[in-house]
Design a protein around this nucleic acid. Structure first.
Length: 441
RNA sequence: GGGGAGAUACCAGAGUGGCCAAAUGGGACAGACUGUAAAUCUGUUGUUUCGACUUCGAAGGUUCGAAUCCUUCUCUCCCCA
């Protein structure tokens, strides 16, 4: 290992780490261009990853590149996050089976701003030479005319080369617009621009970006005879082969107004044993020794779920905060612990509210409750827990609905004032894990 | 431009006059078991006041009766030019 003088102050006591080696044991390397590791061990390198502004928040899928930048910086290199104000306008065909709809400019700008804010949370922007930076490719594309582009850039890359990319090949049958076809060239130019003007020698990303990244290195080579490098991470999948980062209710977002910290915490806690082992390497900064120790502990007493808890704690604190984490565990403890109807009744209103902050809520007027509401009506029309009465009825008959942690035995049951907790709330449970709080006012 | 095939529930995909609210598989949801895990097993998966009601690309028509037959339209795919 070579001592690197450009490391962060926060890093000063650490020896400069071999970035590639670090990623490798974490299972975060899919493809790597020859020479990349040697370069990174020789000197401080500036490297970037692009983020696609398709939504107004990053999802947990985006945490993989975020973690990569974080490791990159910890290894003493300079991380750059690129938000795709320009590329977002074009639409990346990689991994997509159909033409994408374009977002309008206002939405894009908003999304870029939101993502930028989130990215700022994870990296160190004030630690000397390897401070992180955020750039927006719209800045260098806005003045670039079509004619200039096709003369200066397009000339260097052949259509044959572009057609050979998987992202394009896969779409030849179904068809793709010129817009999406040109995407790789736009992204390729980003790399060229950053290489030329900011001395960025490395682009990283998900494995679906490999082709786009290579177009960039190719452009750098052909246009300027320069050398640039590439490294990608494997696509994360769950052990059962399904897509990572989604639940029945949709994507898991980093924005707490879109995914509450409670739900966020629950997502990680619910990871299967197998997945937890993968995730903890990718999404936390625990060392190899720490992780192996946790795994050993987990194996001796799997029901304690040490791995999931460590994982969920680490990432919840890093994405949200310590307070959010505490609230989430507290809520989880009450909802999934030994908690019964009695222990619910005993909670003070303040605790009660803070516990259920992240749980979906509905409101109904007190007057309706005074006369009693049929359970079916209560969970369909009064609240939108179930979309139809038939489904609600079947679910009750199947034993899948509970009020205040007590199973609803009959579809004829009435919800009355007696069910109120703290004279104000009713807790409805759909299945084991889905909670809803009904507020009576 | 010529020829052919097709459009069925979340997806794939059967059904070609009544036995069709529509096989089967996947997915999803729930129950049991468990550890808020995995695997397994079971149930549910159009709406419903449980009498019915609205669905098989769209609109008409034939018929006692249509996902199924006819007409027109829309869209998709394949082959040839």
């Amino acid at each position: 290992m070579i001592y690197n003088p450009y490391i962060c102050t926060s890093n000063k006591n650490n020896m400069i780490k071999n970035f590639v080696e670090e990623l490798k044991w974490r299972g975060m390397v899919q493809d790597i261009m020859p020479g990349t590791e040697e370069l990174l061990n020789k000197q401080m390198v500036a490297g970037y990853i692009g983020f696609d502004p398709t939504a107004d928040s990053l999802g947990i899928g985006n945490m993989v590149p975020v973690m990569m930048l974080l490791h990159f910086q910890k290894a003493g290199h300079k991380p750059i996050a690129l938000v795709g104000g320009a590329t977002g306008m074009v639409g990346d065909p990689s991994g997509k089976s159909a033409e994408r709809n374009l977002l309008d400019e206002a939405t894009l700008n908003y999304n870029v701003a939101c993502q930028k804010k989130q990215l700022e949370k994870f990296l160190d922007f004030n630690c000397g030479a390897n401070s992180a930076e955020i750039v927006n490719n719209y800045d260098w594309f806005k003045e670039f005319t079509l004619l200039e582009f096709i003369r200066d850039i397009g000339k260097h890359i052949s259509v044959n080369y572009m057609m050979a990319k998987d992202s394009v090949k896969n779409r030849l049958e179904k068809g793709m617009s010129f817009t999406e076809f040109s995407y790789q060239l736009i992204q390729g130019y980003d790399f060229y621009y950053l290489w030329k003007n900011k001395n960025i020698q490395l682009q990283m990303g998900g494995s679906d970006q490999w082709g786009n990244i290579l177009t960039g290195t190719e452009l750098i080579r052909r246009k300027s005879g320069g050398e640039a490098f590439a490294l990608t991470t494997p696509l994360i999948k769950k052990a059962d082969g399904t897509k990572f980062g989604k639940t029945e209710t949709g994507n898991i977002w980093l924005d707490k107004t879109k995914t509450s910290p409670y739900k966020f915490y629950q997502f990680w806690l619910n990871a299967s044993d197998e997945d937890a082992k993968t995730y903890i390497r990718i999404f936390t900064l625990f060392t190899k020794e720490e992780i192996e120790k946790l795994e050993a502990e987990h194996n001796t007493a799997p029901h304690l779920r040490v791995l999931q808890k460590a994982l969920a704690k680490d990432i919840t604190i890093r994405v949200h905060s310590e307070e959010d984490y505490n609230a989430a565990t507290e809520a989880s403890e009450i909802l999934f612990g030994k908690g019964t109807a009695e222990s619910l009744q005993k909670l003070s209103e303040e605790d009660f509210l803070s516990v259920f902050e992240g749980v979906e809520q509905f409101e109904i007027p007190k007057s309706e409750l005074e006369t009693g509401i049929d359970i079916i009506n209560f969970i369909t029309e009064k609240t939108n827990i179930f979309p139809s009465k038939g489904e609600a009825r079947k679910m009750i008959q199947g034993g899948g609905v509970s009020i205040n942690k007590t199973k609803v035995e009959s579809v004829d049951m009435k919800v009355t004032m007696e069910h109120l907790i703290n004279n104000k709330y009713i807790l409805v449970q759909k299945g084991k894990k889905n909670y809803y709080l009904i507020k009576v006012s």
